[in-house]
Amino acid sequence: MQLMGIELLLKGNNFLRMLSGLWVAVRISLVSVILSIGLGLIVGALMTVQNKVIKTVMRLYLEIVRIMPQMVLLFIVYFGTTRVFGINIEAELSAIIVFTFWGTAEMGDLVRGALISIPRHQYESAEALGLSKLQTYLYVILPQTLRRLIPLSINLITRMIKTTSLVMMIGIVEVLKVTQQIIEANRRTSPNAAFGMFATVFMMYFIVCWPISLLSKHLEKRWSDR
């Protein structure tokens, strides 16, 4: 009782279950982040083109993602598609689709910002040297863009990890769900376990996200003046 539920961690394989729940959350965000970065580079480049139609479509996409709560997107993909199209998308895959859909838009916007912050004479002096458009992007523009992008995208990654707590709404047993289950199962013996257990979850998120933001600060400092 005095331990406020921490003792539950040592009971059976509870702690291990929580860790594997954490891994589910990290796995979903990791896959989504990697996909978002790849697709975001393309979407970001598309956002800078002069073509009105492409520009409008991209704006619309970004607005939809910003306006729509992630939970609604999750429900649409997980429950909606089964009903309407008769396809059954697995919960974890649904989560990855939604997180990638969201991450790509946010990432794309970051890429767009980074691309337009590169001065025009960088493009011109590369072209004046005879570099093709592709080579100009590959060797001159993208490396500078990535340097500006990494600190910003790390911020997005931590936001994603935090948001994975929503996926239990579509039945994925991640760390938060596991913790709930453990608390429920021990209601009799440890009625006050909630505080300690959720505090543990807090620590777990912290331990995952903290090094990531440290890394971002470090990179920001290292590259700030290049």
Binding site: P119, H121, Q122, E124, S125, A126, V140, P143, Q144, R147, R226
Partner: peptide, 8 residues
């Protein structure tokens, strides 16, 4: 005129 070296 502008310094146009590649900074990275």
């Amino acid at each position: 005129q502008s310094y146009d070296l590649f900074p990275h």
